[in-house]
Computed example of a mutant assay.
Amino acid sequence: MQMKLFKSLWGMEAYTYREAFGKIAAAGYSGVEAGVPMKEHRTEFGQLLQEYNLDYIALISTSGNHEETFKANLETAVSLDPTLVISHSARDCMSEERQLQFFEYAVEAEKHYGIPVGHETHRHRAMFTPWTTARLLQAIPDLKITADFSHWCCVCESLLEDQQENLQIAFERTIHIHARVGYAQGPQVPHPDAPEYKRELEAHELWWEHIWNARISKGFASTTITPEFGPPGYMHTMPFSNEPVSDLWEVCLRMADRLRNKFA
Rank of each mutant, 00 (worst) to 15 (best):
residue 82 P to K: 05
residue 263 F to V: 01
residue 90 A to C: 12
residue 98 R to G: 01
residue 18 R to K: 14
residue 168 Q to F: 09
residue 163 Q to Y: 09
residue 130 P to A: 07
residue 25 A to V: 00
residue 104 E to A: 09
residue 33 E to Q: 14
residue 153 C to M: 11
residue 165 E to L: 06
residue 19 E to V: 02
residue 198 K to Y: 08
residue 26 A to H: 02
residue 27 A to Q: 08
residue 76 T to D: 15
residue 198 K to F: 09
residue 10 W to A: 13
residue 165 E to F: 00
residue 108 E to L: 11
residue 195 P to R: 04
residue 22 G to T: 01
residue 198 K to D: 13
residue 122 H to M: 08
residue 104 E to M: 06
residue 201 L to N: 02
residue 24 I to F: 01
residue 33 E to W: 02
residue 180 R to H: 03
residue 223 T to Q: 14
residue 181 V to S: 06
residue 77 A to V: 06
residue 105 Y to C: 05
residue 55 D to R: 10
residue 86 I to N: 11
residue 49 L to C: 07
residue 221 A to E: 15
residue 1 M to R: 00
residue 190 P to W: 04
residue 45 F to A: 04
residue 230 G to C: 10
residue 234 Y to N: 13
residue 161 E to Q: 13
residue 173 R to K: 15
residue 145 I to D: 06
residue 195 P to C: 13
residue 180 R to W: 10
residue 100 L to I: 08
residue 5 L to Q: 07
residue 41 H to E: 15
residue 213 N to I: 10
residue 104 E to C: 10
residue 252 C to V: 06
residue 34 A to N: 14
residue 143 L to D: 03
residue 15 Y to I: 00
residue 128 F to K: 06
residue 227 P to W: 06
residue 211 I to R: 01
residue 209 E to S: 14
residue 83 T to R: 12
residue 237 T to K: 00
residue 90 A to Q: 10
residue 233 G to Q: 09
residue 95 S to W: 06
residue 156 C to E: 15
residue 34 A to Q: 07
residue 215 R to C: 06
residue 62 T to E: 11
residue 157 E to I: 00
residue 85 V to I: 11
residue 106 A to F: 07
residue 62 T to R: 04
residue 6 F to P: 02
residue 78 V to P: 00
residue 251 V to L: 11
residue 205 E to C: 13
